[in-house]
Design a protein around this nucleic acid. Structure first.
Lengths: 220, 220
DNA sequence: AAACATTTGTCCGTATGTATA
DNA sequence: ATATACATACGGACAAATGTT
């Protein structure tokens, strides 16, 4: 009988980490609503832990911008300002564009295949109008590129912005369009060709287009 | 008699914040050395508080990448990998470039004057070879632009990267050169002209040049 | 192998500060 | 203005995990 490989034993899973993950998820999906007041005693009971890991999680969530703590007064979930997508996407766009540039020297055939395969799955999800999956696969696609940029600062920043993207897209009902499929193909092509300028330009456009789509959606 | 306006009464100053600021400073300036093991009991005694605010500060410092916590084992100051400047500056460069673009529509005459005055002080510091002041003033200069971009995500990311810049420049003895003075002038000019592309290009160069200077320094 | 020393993680009581009556 | 209720910040003890003798 194969012994169940306890893979994740390197860093033990603390109550704080569990609490953090759960609370973040609740904020992103709206279980904890924008503006909602957070009482650590309640949350502690709900998650079956004490107040300490809750408080520590809330502090991390504050750094990420998901909650705001008013010392001695209250802690509440930050508002979802739909307009903030106009602020969020530009920095993400330039960082993803930079990632693409940096990834070029590290690319090999199998990575390109992985990107193509991911975009293929992305296309299927979009065409099936499974926008939830599409969003997740789109994230995978871009993550491959970010990973290959092999830059820990970019990696860390993108990792902290991505949950905000999810939260905003979720609350704004932004959907992935077919145009992204072709842009991804362009990205793959320019990556293969090693064309830094063009891949950066397309990547930037790919992200900024969501802003236009959001803004045009409002006027409809 | 003018009543001393208690400006910062909005958020009270907690023990955690004090501890955090102090610990971060110690790590940046090398009082707490790279690789040093951090014992929260010792730190608590040193700062005259209990372990709680210390632990909370350490967790924030971990998110920022200044310490690494090994649950149940140890907490230590992260190493200063001199080469990581090659990773740190590119994302900062593209974000500062983006900030300049975004700042253009918000600029007025008094802002331009403020930038010129700051660059003038910068020039004096560089010429006086007071590189510590120069670095701080350079930071001020760029901060003005970031502030005017009025983008909270950029603001927050830059704020988290800046301490790393300070730490690396400190440990690498990187100095500000006269070339930066002229580049700042170019930045001001292109901002005034509203030339997005050019100001972004110069801004990016201004930051990336530090990489070249660092790399050429190694071979000397 | 087992008990020990050490360090971190967690719990919960108390103090402090804030808002409301 | 004072008192009261309440939420958070902090403190200190205990539990759990690590690695060492």
């Amino acid at each position: 009988m194969p012994i169940p490989t306890e893979y994740q034993k390197q860093t033990r899973k603390t109550a704080k980490e569990n609490a953090f993950t759960q609370l973040q998820q609740w904020i992103i999906d709206g279980t904890l609503q924008p503006g909602e007041k957070l009482n650590d005693v309640e949350l502690a009971e709900a998650l079956g832990v004490s107040r300490t890991p809750i408080r520590e999680s809330l502090q991390l969530l504050e750094v990420q911008g998901f909650v705001k703590m008013y010392p001695g007064k209250a802690t509440q979930v930050t508002e979802v300002d739909k307009e903030s997508i106009n602020d969020l996407l530009p920095p993400l766009a330039v960082l993803q564009a930079l990632s693409a540039e940096l990834a070029i020297p590290t690319l090999n055939e199998s990575t390109i295949e992985e990107l193509e395969e991911t975009n293929h799955r992305f296309a299927k999800a979009v065409q099936a109008e499974d926008y939830f999956s599409a969003l997740k696969i789109d994230e995978e696609f871009h993550q491959i590129i970010v990973d290959h940029a092999a830059n820990r600062y970019i990696h860390s920043i993108v990792a902290s912005l991505q949950p905000h993207v999810r939260r905003l897209f979720f609350h704004n009902s932004i959907i992935m369009t077919e145009k992204s499929i072709d842009e991804h193909k362009d990205i793959i092509r320019f990556l293969t060709e090693g064309n830094k300028e063009k891949v950066a330009a397309v990547m930037r456009e790919n992200w900024l287009r969501a802003i236009d789509e959001f803004n045009s959606m409002k006027t409809e």
